[in-house]
Design a protein around this nucleic acid. Structure first.
Lengths: 225, 225
DNA sequence: GAAATAGTGTCTGTAAGACATTATAGG
DNA sequence: CCTATAATGTCTTACAGACACTATTTC
């Protein structure tokens, strides 16, 4: 055991989760009001201490914290980055293992509870700790990874139309896409498949419903959309 | 303060560094023999505890640990992933903020000291802790990111020929590249520039030397090589 | 000139962008 | 019929892959 282990004991280890969803075509972040100091009453990401007796690993801790605080079970959760410094928490040196999660607006609504707030990710007020920076990193990751993966599917419910999927990609990446090219590439990549059923939204031809193929892994492709 | 802070105090926080270099056309990892238990005498990544009084943040801790243990100053250092679980260290729940670093063989040789070993990244023996897995993640990250960025440049010395750069990309990514297309793309992307001087390696025309352009940021491009 | 690698030019095939056309629903 | 969106087909353009050709060095 090293002589300086006592020093390392001063380090606090937490997990924080950036939960993102798409509502009315805009990316939104789930935030909560802090009950305790520091920053009591201010908005912050859902987060908490790791419970070594309870959590097998950091991902389990993130899922537990998210479920305990918000009742949300996100279909996609990925480690984002670890923020570790003496400056980010007024109480001293601290480590936050940050995750980001994606969930559909529909699934979020189903939790019922309104212990949290959803705010536009692009127009946030000043948040507790370095949480603004953590969210920026999450948005960068989502936008970047969306260009070459099936990630945006996790912002939609289980079944969706190709137009909804295209709009989701467009809203996340911030650029318009060509319908024909988009569908050609979807067909080539083959990570979605038609499922029985259609959706009608007006006085016109209804759209075929699709869902992610059974092999639920994240599809990653060579060239971006 | 939460009631379970005492529990969080049991968590040990370390940094570990996967330092990669290219020697004789093969990716190699810097490893050291552990002096203390657990795993005394076994090979492990250079790593150590965070020193809250000394390290501003995790990156600073990684640079300090690398410099202290190996005298290496790597031109590229990036946070890789955080391994945090109750299973990875026999002493209990622990957190390792892992980094990966790139350095040229020439710069590594200049350190002189041989307190470390360099082993082929693709044929490693069983290492301490979960270090095999950490190295796998580092290799995946390097290979993936090399396909769409100027990252491999950091495996070369300051000045290099375009053939050397192409071979570096090929060795990292494991696929042959077309010389003409490679150079066309380099010219388009424009992150390297010719510098005065040439290198002659045989009885033939010498090659122009190049170096990374002054704006030393990592160049990231849309489509992979 | 021969040999070897540096460096450039040209053709081709593939895939994305642009845009037109057909399909199918309700009124 | 008209309207609106779904879904597909076709033409063009951009770029990567393949490969030939020229350039420059030592012997």
């Amino acid at each position: 055991m090293p002589a300086n282990l006592s020093a390392t004991r001063q380090i606090v280890v937490t997990v924080d989760v950036v939960l993102l969803t798409l509502r009315d075509g805009r990316l939104q972040v789930l935030l909560m009001r802090r009950e305790n100091d520091p920053f009591a009453g201010q908005l912050a990401l859902p987060g908490g201490y790791i419970h070594p007796q309870q959590d097998d690993d950091a991902g389990a801790a993130a899922r537990r914290v998210l479920a305990d605080k918000t009742r949300v079970r996100a279909p996609y959760l990925e480690q984002l980055y670890t923020y570790a410094s003496g400056a980010r928490d007024p109480r001293g040196w601290s480590v936050s293992i940050a995750f980001y999660a994606l969930v559909s607006e529909q699934a979020l609504r189903r939790t019922g509870r309104e212990v949290f707030e959803l705010l536009d990710a692009d127009a946030l007020p000043h948040l507790s700790f370095d949480h603004n920076r953590i969210i920026e990193t999450a948005l960068d990751r989502l936008r970047n990874k969306s260009a070459y993966s099936s990630l945006p599917c996790y912002l939609l419910p289980d079944r969706f139309t190709l137009t909804e999927l295209q709009q989701t990609y467009e809203q996340v990446m911030g650029v318009p896409l060509e319908k024909s090219a988009f569908r050609r590439k979807l067909a080539d990549l083959g990570f979605v498949e038609p499922v029985p059923g259609a959706r009608q939204t007006g006085q016109h031809r209804p759209a075929q419903l699709y869902s992610l193929k059974a092999g639920a892994r994240l599809a990653v492709f060579e060239r971006p959309f």
